[in-house]
């Protein structure tokens, strides 16, 4: 006798999503708890941690932002292999505003976020007309070449970088700032994706022809998505710059490109929660594996291959399914 696995949506899920009928506190909790976990987890526990683990949380959050930004681009079918482009541009913008004009972080970070988003969008605008593969190629090439530009022209401090930038007043401010931005981005992007606008965006990656024939300028919408993603990435760069009190060529390093991709793929592409989970697994893991040196990157690379080939849906959709559906084995006759 053969057995087959059957999946059925839990009644609560169906009532909540399709007919909007909630009858008890239990059902309200069922809906609210998953969203509350990251909020409570980030905002309440972080202050209790030691300085060292706060640092880890901060760098995890930076990578999580880059991963969520990557996921946003992926929604429109844009595969970025150069999140470090966004990070580096944001970092150098905030750094120069602080170093040359003496602006405080409260001004440099918002300016670098918007400005970085605009610059990156302009840089990538010509590629948006082309197939996805070109976008991947150009995003991989650009940050490495820009760091060469800095090296060759010796602008913006050249290989030395810009040092002695204004730090955050204290660590706790920094932790809260990045966590709030992370949560706003997370829930904001999820809301965008769930809206009619998000439907158009995902439509572009599914079937661009159909979206074009619906009278929608897909280049313009892709540019908007790139702006959203690049702004978030630039924020991460600007934040990291003030955290380290340094802006330099490492901002364009491959780490900032590969880690977000790995985190998003491991966590589950297209969910925004997935990249967050992925970053919170991979970054602390790499912190623990610090002694292994280059082997860490080997692990990321292998994680990427294994998940892309073997478990393409990622961790988050798996958890989601367990939460929303009942599974049971039934006989097949």
């Amino acid at each position: 006798m053969k057995k087959r696995k059957e999946r059925i949506d839990r009644g609560i899920k169906v009532r909540a999503q399709d007919i909007f009928a909630l009858t008890s506190y239990r059902e309200m909790l069922y809906l609210l708890v998953p969203g509350a976990i990251p909020v409570v987890g980030l905002l309440c526990f972080a202050p209790m941690l030691s300085n060292y683990w706060r640092e880890v949380i901060i760098s995890t959050a930076i990578y999580a932002l880059l991963a969520i930004s990557w996921d946003m681009l992926m929604c429109a079918g844009l595969l970025s292999l150069g999140q470090s482009l966004f990070f580096g541009i944001g970092s150098y913008l905030a750094g120069s505003l602080n170093h040359y004009l003496g602006l405080p972080p409260i001004l440099t970070i918002p300016l670098a976020t918007i400005g970085g988003g605009l610059i990156c969008t302009l840089l990538l605008l010509p590629v948006l007309r082309l197939r996805g593969i070109y976008f991947a190629m150009v995003t991989l090439v650009l940050p490495l070449m820009l760091s060469r530009l800095v090296e060759a022209t010796r602008i913006l401090g050249g290989t030395e970088g810009l040092t002695g930038l204004t730090p955050f007043p204290n660590q706790l401010t920094a932790v809260f700032l990045i966590q709030i931005v992370l949560l706003v981005t997370l829930f904001g992007f999820r809301r965008i994706k769930g809206s009619d606008y998000g439907l158009v965006i995902t439509g572009i990656s599914d079937n661009d022809r159909s979206v074009m024939s619906a009278g929608i300028n897909i280049q313009w919408y892709k540019a908007q998505v790139v702006f959203l993603g690049a702004s978030v990435g630039s924020f991460a760069g600007a934040f990291g710059t003030h955290m380290d009190m340094f802006a330099g060529m490492p901002g364009f390093a491959l780490d900032y490109s590969i880690m977000p991709v790995a985190a998003a793929v491991v966590g589950g592409v297209g969910t925004f929660f997935g990249p967050l989970i992925g970053a919170f697994i991979l970054v602390p893991l790499s912190e623990a594996l610090r002694a292994l040196g280059a082997l860490r990157i080997v692990f990321y690379g292998l994680f990427l291959v294994i998940f892309v080939v073997g478990i393409p849906e990622g961790i988050f959709p798996y958890i989601q399914r367990k939460y929303q559906q009942v599974e049971r084995w039934v006989d097949v006759t």
């Binding site: 009619d196 159909s210 619906a214 009278g215």
Partner: peptide, 13 residues
Amino acid sequence: YKNLIVPLYSPRV
């Protein structure tokens, strides 16, 4: 029905 959201989102509409 969600397939029609995209054309309904069009600037023309």
